[in-house]
Simulated assay, not measured.
Amino acid sequence: MPANSDRIELRVLTEPQQGSNYRMLLDIAKATEELGYGAFFRSDHYLKMGGVSGEPGVTDAWITLAGLARDTNTVRLGTLLTSNTFRHIGPLAVSVAQVDEMSGGRVELGLGAGWYDDEHTAFGIPQPSVKDRFDDLEDSLEALDKWWYRNERGTTFDYTGHNLQLRESPTLTRPVQEQLPLIVGGHGKKRTPSFAARFATEFNVPFSPAADTARINGYVDSACAEVDRDPGTLLRSAAQVICCGTSDEELARRADAIGRDLDELRENGLAGTPEEVVAKARSYADEAGVSRLYLQFLDMTDLDHLALVADKVLPEL
């Protein structure tokens, strides 16, 4: 796996499908920017998960990011991960490039195969088989590469993939950034690491212990070798639930607010005092080569939580 730098970048990850509106997300994004985090990211889901009401509603990921592109100034913005089943890849390519232009080149795209069956049923979104979903994702990644980077502006091209066909497709509106960061992630042994090695600038392992993250990154190293890519050119990241407090009472309150057991969070997430969170974050760097952590702040009304982590954890990493 790539050598880890001395610093670990911390990013804010939100789950708006659990209940949010644009004003709430703007408040968090502005706090992310003001407090010095590396980026504001959001999931791309329409249906709540678990025992929450979903109030005040759900929001669309790329409409949200378009608004934030205009309502923030410096913070980077992205998805972890956009579901490839939600949007045809051509219109998505246009949307992402346009939001990048709106933001002045601050957008990153995380793209995944899609997985949440109930969500697809609830919103009338077709859900192909697992094989077809991964075939479709490979098609989308290849097509994005051709639209944005492999053909001269103003030309057209043809493409035939597993399920996607393009005929005389015009080179689309391109991102402002010379290479818009593209994130691929997951737990798979073969296809996901292969996609990352071929197309991505970052590979993310979500919600896994450091030892498992290291093992999965080993699959990515092997995939890089197969395509003669230096694995050190592929940034490694992880996502973890954050629950930080300076006292037992504060920790218990934050765990209760998100409906999680504190002992379970200590075992499986980044939970504890600032010192404990720092130590566990460093374990991801030391054991798994991770240089970026997405902190999943599940209570989107608790801006003091963001401030505490920015004050006590971020400077130590």
Rank of each mutant, 00 (worst) to 15 (best):
H120Y: 13
L141W: 10
Y46K: 05
E138L: 08
R198S: 10
L137R: 01
S140D: 09
R167W: 01
L144T: 09
T213P: 11
A3R: 14
G78L: 08
K131Q: 09
L35E: 07
N268Q: 14
E119A: 10
G114Q: 13
A113N: 03
A29K: 01
E250M: 12
S103Q: 01
R191A: 03
G67V: 02
L164F: 12
E264V: 10
Y294R: 02
D117V: 09
M102Q: 09
S129F: 10
T301R: 14
D139K: 13
V52G: 03
M102G: 02
E152M: 04
N151C: 13
L262V: 13
A29I: 07
A255S: 02
L10N: 08
G269Q: 13
F123I: 09
A214C: 11
L295V: 07
Y116F: 14
S169F: 00
I125F: 00
T273K: 08
V277Y: 09
E138Y: 09
F157Y: 00
T160P: 00
D71R: 06
L109K: 06
L293D: 09
D261L: 14
F297E: 03
R236W: 05
T201C: 10
G54D: 02
R167E: 13
W115N: 08
G19A: 11
N204L: 15
A279L: 12
N217Q: 12
G124Y: 05
S194Y: 00
S222W: 02
K280D: 14
F195K: 08
E276D: 15
G114Y: 12
T14Q: 07
H187K: 13
H120P: 04
S5N: 12
A197R: 02
I216V: 14
R260Y: 06
G188F: 10
S237G: 04
D27P: 01
S83W: 03
T74M: 11
V58D: 01
G186Y: 05
T85L: 15
E202P: 02
E226P: 04
H45K: 02
V205Y: 06
D44Q: 03
Q17H: 14
I125H: 03
F207S: 14
S129T: 15
G161H: 08
A122G: 01
W148S: 12
G50H: 11
A281E: 07
T213N: 10
L166K: 03
A257H: 11
H305C: 10
R266V: 06
H88Y: 00
G114E: 13
V278M: 07
T156Y: 00
A39V: 04
F199N: 15
